[in-house]
């Protein structure tokens, strides 16, 4: 795992992705500061919406990148001569993905919450600070799940472009179509990961309880992860 952490530290994409997320967090805060909303509830919803979109996109990009880095660089030979057990390599990559997303998410969410509350206090708005924190923090678990989905599609595609295209198509398009299928509609990836967010945010409008929604989100992630993982275990590499 040490080598995977070093790649994240030394290569550009994770740094740029992190910078973009933090920049978005700062921009949201500045936006709320410069253009204070009239409705106090908008501080939480605006911050939550912005973080949800930003973190989801960043998580997919980061997930696909970490899965496809060795394909793109032609570096499987050096990775697998140091650690020929492909399961171990993939688990290390997945662990670094989860750690990275959690770390970045905590910083970004913390920044957003802090700036949002600062903007509200400057505008003299009466906001429930706990509510802002819960709503913004709730965006993190679905984003991590989206990162795992990106990782899975990255492994399956074997290329950054292909992985991102597949993952975006699934998360933003296909998942919407799946909601139209009777029986499955209530249990799509988007529905259950949205329920996780809603439950943590404490909106009380989720279709499923937190545990059920979380378990099905994990199951969806595993289902999307499995084909690419198996392909890598069994396939020929360069």
């Amino acid at each position: 795992m040490s080598a995977e952490l070093a790649k994240v530290r030394y290569l550009h994409l994770p740094r740029w992705t992190a910078a973009a997320v933090l920049a978005a967090a700062v921009l949201v805060g500045l936006g709320l500061l410069i253009f204070p909303p009239s409705d106090a509830g908008r501080y939480a919803s605006t911050s939550s919406f912005a973080m949800s979109i930003t973190l989801t996109i960043a998580a997919i990009v980061y997930g696909v990148w970490i899965a496809t880095l060795e394909f793109a660089s032609g570096t499987w030979q050096r990775t697998l001569t140091a650690e020929p057990d492909r399961n171990t390599v993939l688990l290390a990559k997945l662990a670094v993905l989860l750690l990275g997303l959690a770390g970045l998410g905590v910083v970004a969410v913390g920044t957003t919450i802090g700036l949002s509350e600062f903007a509200a206090s400057r505008a003299g708005a009466d906001v429930d600070q706990g509510d802002v924190a819960r709503q913004v923090a709730a965006t993190l678990p679905p984003a991590i799940a989206a990162g795992v989905v990106g990782f899975g599609f990255g492994l399956l595609a074997g290329s950054m472009g292909g992985g991102i295209a597949f993952a975006f198509a699934f998360v933003f398009v296909l998942d919407g179509f799946l909601t139209q299928i009777p029986g499955l509609g209530d249990w799509t990836f988007g529905t259950v990961s949205g329920d996780v967010q809603t439950e943590i945010a404490g909106d009380g409008t989720a279709e499923h309880g937190l545990v059920a929604a979380l378990l099905v989100t994990i199951a969806w992630s595993a289902v999307i992860l499995a084909p690419g993982w198996l392909r890598l275990l069994r396939g020929d590499l360069k």
Binding site: S2, A3, A6, Y10, L11, S73, G74, E83, K238
Partner: peptide, 21 residues
């Protein structure tokens, strides 16, 4: 075939990633 390099990383960083592996 081609040398397996992380092109955005420096020579030293490439070697560090290798030895950490």
């Amino acid at each position: 075939e081609s040398p397996p390099l992380y092109k955005r990383a420096s020579a030293l960083q490439n070697l560090e990633i290798r030895v950490r592996a």
